[in-house]
Write a protein that binds this DNA or RNA. Sequence first.
DNA 1: TGGCATATGATAACGATTATCATTATCCCA
DNA 2: TGGGATAATGATAATCGTTATCATATGCCA
Lengths: 125, 125
Amino acid sequence: MSVRREAILEVLTSGPGHLSAQEIHRAAQERLPRIGIATVYRALKFLCACGKAAEFIPADGVARYEPAGSRAHHDHLICNSCGSFIEAVEPEIEKLQIRLAARHGFKPSSHKLEIYGICSRCSGK
Amino acid sequence: MSVRREAILEVLTSGPGHLSAQEIHRAAQERLPRIGIATVYRALKFLCACGKAAEFIPADGVARYEPAGSRAHHDHLICNSCGSFIEAVEPEIEKLQIRLAARHGFKPSSHKLEIYGICSRCSGK
DNA sequence: TGGCATATGATAACGATTATCATTATCCCA
DNA sequence: TGGGATAATGATAATCGTTATCATATGCCA
């Protein structure tokens, strides 16, 4: 783990989560002003490969990153109004996914559940 | 509905489904050799807007399109080996998603469930 | 200290998608 | 039916996120 990769992991764990590569780059530049965007992408790929970070790609097609490893799997509630991401877990859904996959002779390795809608903050306004 | 948009909808309904814009472009060119890629993108956006097609974006970030309207919602099992898409439904999951959203004060409007793994054809080999 | 593998930054390249703009087809009403 | 407004189209440039390239810098071990 180089200094930059440590810094990028630190950005992931200390930040609000669900950051894009560009946002991570900007945040990292506050500590390491000369860090390049390519290094950020390389670091993110590295961190995902060794299980310290996780990538997911929502409906806008832009990859987001979050710290992983010590964190449990979770799904995302994504607000169409303010763009915020809420993490949520429903263990029953996890079980049903396995059953659904099995019914089709499919061996699941990972899954992604995203629910789009309006968050409580936006609907309250 | 112009001639090209009809043709593109026809490609969607007659094809194997889950096609990318480029694949749709190639298929449409068999009937309309002079059709441009921009027209394909415009037609797809139009068809999605009027509910005749649906777009979804899997983990590779490349949008896929399928006919919609008369078709029920379904989730996707995506094979990491051969890239095939299997459509599947689990009504219980649909209900649980609503419950999960409600628990967070979230008003769901749509959702996306993708399960990645190995399909029966690939694991059988 | 020397040497080699790895990491880095700048930047070019790439692929998907969108915007632009001139041209063409389509529609609608007189 | 004609003609003009409107929408659709095709070619292509632009954009954006991401990856590849390559020369340089850094770290590490002998």
